[in-house]
């Protein structure tokens, strides 16, 4: 409870000494970081650095073996994924995880599931409060569809869309939950230049217009350095650097992690 005082003010998400082991493999070890309210926070690092594991801990799919994670002052270290979603954290997945058989519209409506209140019986009956609620949710979803320029594809089964569009629908589904913290796991992976530019614009718009705090994993350095307020660099499960894009770019440990250790070569 004392942590609440420490994480007051502008800290949205506070990770303290988080560690995760899978059998003998130490996927994440002793990572601490603060994500500030309203910022874009990027996590970068080579493959296998533990970035996705960290994201899975934040969204509740894994629980840290050591350390803690606080969201808006609440300890969420042992909270399950569906409750974490209800607290206002939404995410996308590295491999697209849309409900393939459903239309774009239904996928986005599912994204709003956390905000839907009516019980089993009233939703069976579909009148009164359930109906009014449905209409209100539908309006918000239509706004997001318009924002992401998916209007023509509303009734298309999501599995039939091109890759870049599926990524966009997945972003839309996360937005539909009106999260205060949005986690994006490689939102631009596998996209062509034009699709990347679109995605960057949407991410920036969400951040600036809706004030949503965003934490993202991305491999495209150009994009990361352009849009992030803070960057955290991970390698082999550990945090090796953190700071503004310029600070990180200048950090020799980061260069080593990406290009191999040049110092050691000279010694040898």
């Amino acid at each position: 409870m004392n942590d609440t005082a420490g994480s007051g003010g502008g800290v949205k998400l506070k990770i303290q000494g988080a560690a995760k082991n899978f059998g003998g493999v130490r996927a994440v070890s002793n990572v601490s970081a603060d994500v500030q309210e309203g910022e874009i926070f990027a996590i970068i690092g080579p493959n296998g650095a533990g970035k996705t594991t960290l994201l899975n801990m934040i969204s509740g799919f894994y629980h840290p073996d050591e350390g803690s994670i606080h969201f808006e002052g609440h300890d969420i270290s042992t909270t399950g994924p569906s409750e974490i979603a209800a607290l206002g954290i939404a995410r996308t997945f590295q491999n697209i995880a849309l409900f393939r058989g459903m239309t774009v519209l239904d996928n986005l409506m599912m994204g709003r599931h956390v905000l839907m209140k009516s019980g089993v019986l009233s939703s069976f009956l579909y009148w009164g409060p359930a109906r009014r609620e449905e209409v209100a949710h539908r309006e918000k979803v239509e706004q997001i569809i318009e924002f992401l320029k998916l209007t023509d594809l509303r009734k298309t089964p999501s599995g039939a869309l091109a890759y870049g569009l599926q990524k966009r629908v997945e972003l839309g589904r996360a937005l539909a939950a009106e999260p205060s913290l949005l986690l994006l796991d490689e939102p631009m992976a596998g996209m062509n230049q034009e699709e990347k530019e679109d995605m960057v614009r949407y991410v920036l718009d969400v951040n600036q217009e809706w004030g949503t705090t965003i934490a993202l994993i991305e491999h495209d350095m150009g994009v990361v350095m352009d849009i992030s307020d803070h960057v955290m660099v991970m390698d082999m499960g550990e945090k090796i650097s953190q700071g503004t894009p310029d600070e990180v770019r200048a950090d020799h440990r980061v260069i080593e992690a990406y290009l191999g250790s040049t110092d050691h070569k000279e010694v040898a």
Binding site: A85, F124, A130
Partner: peptide, 27 residues
């Protein structure tokens, strides 16, 4: 129920992917 009601659609979502459904806040 499965085509129109929210609970039914959520049930289809659960069938599609347990993990993704959890991330949507579905119990």
């Amino acid at each position: 129920f499965f085509m129109k009601s929210r609970k039914g659609v959520a049930m289809r979502a659960v069938a599609d992917s347990h993990m993704t459904s959890m991330a949507m806040g579905i119990n």
